[in-house]
């Protein structure tokens, strides 16, 4: 369970990233955060694994306030929170297997990882993760030989290999075309269902949020301006969140799934 209690964050340059955020996310939920760019979506999810640190309030993950964490505790928190990025963040010159195994680093001692002593279980787990996103045949390809959608699937496999309780995805489809976007979202949804991993995704595409979310949280200027199940959401809700009329580029389109 993740609980935001009066969480605020002011960046050193004075920008207000989060303002009095109160949100509780229950285990197993699939939450989509929507809002325009700069609304604080990224700050919200990056607070959960402490890539950024809120300046006031309390943020509880599994009943522990993570804002006080340092060093070892911080690493322990991060090993149970997986993250997916807009630009996939793979080591382009390394092969797919090595990139996926990097998900185990938090569970592996520094010395063992440096002499490349990943256990048999870790290797098998990495391979299984790749199979779950259907990219196991690229095992020994270099990451930069893959397309954007394939790279994002590898990064999902990396997170799976980490065996997290939570997955954070920061604009995971912003660099992808519509069919690939739907494919990536479907994998995230499937993993959420099958492994009961709580998943929080930042999106700015309305149609995708509607299609995949259980619950939608709307943000504007660092504040939560909407929070409710997807059944309560309609176009008016988005106009309220965005503070303007809905435009065509707020939609991703291409809802009919294609296999690649």
């Amino acid at each position: 369970m993740i609980e935001f209690k009066d969480v605020s964050l002011v960046y050193p340059n004075g920008t207000q990233g989060l303002k009095d955020v109160n949100v509780t996310i229950k285990d197993g939920e699939f939450v989509v955060i929507v809002g325009l760019s700069g609304a604080g979506k990224s700050t919200f999810i990056r607070s959960i694994n402490r890539i950024v640190t809120p300046t006031s309030g309390a943020l509880l993950v599994d009943e522990e306030d993570i804002l006080k964490y340092k060093g070892k505790d911080l690493r322990r928190l991060r090993t149970k929170v997986g993250m997916i990025f807009q630009n996939y963040n793979l080591v382009k010159r390394s092969n797919v297997m090595k990139n996926v195994l990097a998900g185990r680093l938090g569970h592996t001692g520094t010395f063992r990882s440096i002499v490349n002593l990943f256990s048999k279980e870790d290797r098998a787990l990495a391979f299984e993760s790749l199979r779950r996103v259907n990219i196991e045949e690229k095992l020994y390809n270099r990451a930069d030989e893959l397309s954007g959608g394939q790279q994002q699937r590898v990064s999902i496999a990396r997170v799976l290999t980490q065996k997290p309780n939570y997955i954070l995805a920061d604009e995971p489809v912003a660099s992808l075309d519509p069919p690939t976007s739907h494919q990536v979202m479907s994998y995230l949804k499937k993993i959420n269902r099958e492994d009961k991993i709580t998943t929080i995704v930042n999106l700015h595409f309305i149609d995708m949020a509607m299609e995949y979310a259980d619950r939608i949280i709307g943000m504007r200027a660092g504040e939560v301006v909407f929070d409710g199940p997807v059944s309560q959401v309609n176009e008016k809700t988005f106009e309220k969140i965005y503070g303007r009329a809905i435009r065509e580029d707020d939609m991703r389109g291409g809802a009919d799934l294609e296999e690649d």
Binding site: K120, A124, A126, F127, E128, L130, R131, L139, Y140
Partner: peptide, 12 residues
Amino acid sequence: MAELQMPPKKKR
């Protein structure tokens, strides 16, 4: 995790 399959060896 014993039932998981090991990755194939890299072809050299």
